[in-house]
């Protein structure tokens, strides 16, 4: 374990559970999917914590989170509520939201959330990791397995698109 890394699953869940849930929510825009994803991530952490090797714990955790998200979206492909990375361009932004989704979006910055969902997946992921989770570019690069230059570009382009979508 690296210094400061949690030593038990419970500690990870207590320390990071809320962050993982918020990451999942902002990526999916859906409380049910966010809860499913958070549960899946915590299960994977529970299984994988014993095999964790010293290094960036945040990088390790967010890599698991990101992979769980992609797997979860693929699993739900038959009844998609979240666009797959390569399906973003076909996002049907006009589809009717679930009642629970409507309820959750009230007072939660629904216009900003909707704009986030319209970003290509790779941009949305980097913007959320940067501005919602609060990771550094280096940590994001570790989580999404991309060079820092790519992360920088995705965040920049994501913000430019957000600006257009919100204005």
């Amino acid at each position: 374990m690296s210094e400061g890394a949690p030593t038990s699953w419970e500690e990870v869940a207590r320390t990071y559970g809320r962050k993982i849930y918020n990451f999942a929510y902002r990526l999916t825009g859906n409380p049910d999917d966010a809860a499913d994803l958070t549960q899946e991530v915590l299960l994977r952490v529970r299984k994988g914590l014993a095999g964790y090797r010293p290094g960036s714990f945040d990088g390790w955790l967010w890599r698991i989170t990101r992979n769980a998200f992609i797997d979860e979206v693929r699993r739900k492909k038959r009844r998609p509520t979240v666009p797959l990375p390569d399906e973003v361009d076909r996002l049907d932004a006009g589809s009717a939201p679930e009642p629970s989704e409507v309820l959750a979006s009230v007072r939660l910055g629904d216009d900003i959330q909707q704009a986030l969902l319209e970003l290509p997946y790779e941009f949305r992921e980097c913007v959320v990791l940067c501005d919602v989770v609060g990771l550094s570019y280096e940590e994001i690069a570790g989580a999404v397995a991309a060079p820092i230059g790519t992360v920088r570009s995705r965040i920049h382009r994501g913000r430019k698109m957000l600006k257009e979508l919100l204005s």
Binding site: A13, R14, G17, Y21, A35, T38, G109, I112, R159, K160
Partner: peptide, 23 residues
């Protein structure tokens, strides 16, 4: 413009997970 876009995302409230999901 970039600063406004960043501020918009950062202004999103922190959501509490449903009860029982995380300790």
């Amino acid at each position: 413009d970039l600063q406004r876009a960043r501020a918009a995302v950062r202004s999103l409230i922190v959501l509490e997970p449903p009860p029982g999901l995380v300790p």
